[in-house]
């Protein structure tokens, strides 16, 4: 399936892009991360510490075991610093 992925803050800077569309069969956020890590060194490095990364599926904050089989967009970002 086609999936839009968004990256924010230092994750966006490290990967050099804020948005990409991928073809994936990943069933969960964790599986998608594994897939991205396997791409190249840059992705492996950016996703090396998943404790420092949060995820959202279709604009809702989720845990990494969240189902993405019907998702349109997944976003990755560091812990938020609003206010």
């Amino acid at each position: 399936m086609k999936l839009d992925i968004r990256y924010f803050a230092w994750l966006r800077e490290r990967l050099g892009t804020g948005h990409e569309t991928v073809e994936t069969d990943a069933g969960t956020v964790a599986e998608l991360i594994e897939e991205l890590r396997g791409r190249d060194e840059g992705y492996a490095h950016a996703f090396s510490d998943t404790g420092a990364i949060r995820a959202a599926v279709d604009e809702d904050l989720v845990e990494f075991d969240a189902d993405i089989s019907r998702a349109r967009e997944v976003a990755f970002f560091p812990p938020m610093t609003g206010g």
Partner: peptide
């Protein structure tokens, strides 16, 4: 503070740094 998707970056003369949660 921790549930709205905002990220702050401080820009100083010595460079720019993301604010850690």
């Amino acid at each position: 503070k921790s549930r709205a998707p905002f990220w702050k970056k401080e820009v100083t003369r010595s460079g720019a740094e993301w604010v850690a949660a």
